Simulated scan of single mutants.
Amino acid sequence: MKPQKMAPEAVKMLRSLSGIEKDALCWRIGIKRGWLNNIISQGRGPSPILALRIEDATHGKIKREWLCPNIDWELVGDYNPLTSPKGKKLSQP
Rank of each mutant, 00 (worst) to 15 (best):
R15T: 07
S16Y: 09
S16H: 05
L17Q: 10
L17P: 02
L17H: 03
S18H: 03
S18L: 10
S18M: 05
G19V: 12
D23I: 04
A24Q: 11
A24H: 03
A24V: 05
A24S: 08
C26A: 06
W27L: 15
R28V: 04
R28G: 02
I29V: 15
I29H: 11
G30F: 14
G30M: 15
G30L: 15
I31L: 11
I31N: 04
I31R: 05
I31E: 07
I31S: 05
K32P: 01
R33N: 06
W35E: 02
L36C: 07
L36H: 07
L36Q: 10
L36F: 05
N38Y: 01
N38H: 01
I40G: 02
S41K: 15
S41F: 05
Q42R: 13
G43N: 09
R44L: 15
R44K: 14
G45Q: 12
G45W: 13
G45R: 13
P46Q: 11
P46S: 09
S47I: 09
S47R: 13
P48M: 12
P48K: 11
P48C: 07
I49Q: 09
A51L: 12
L52P: 00
L52G: 02
L52A: 02
L52E: 03
R53Y: 02
R53G: 00
R53V: 00
R53Q: 11
I54E: 04
E55K: 07
E55Y: 05
E55S: 07
A57Y: 09
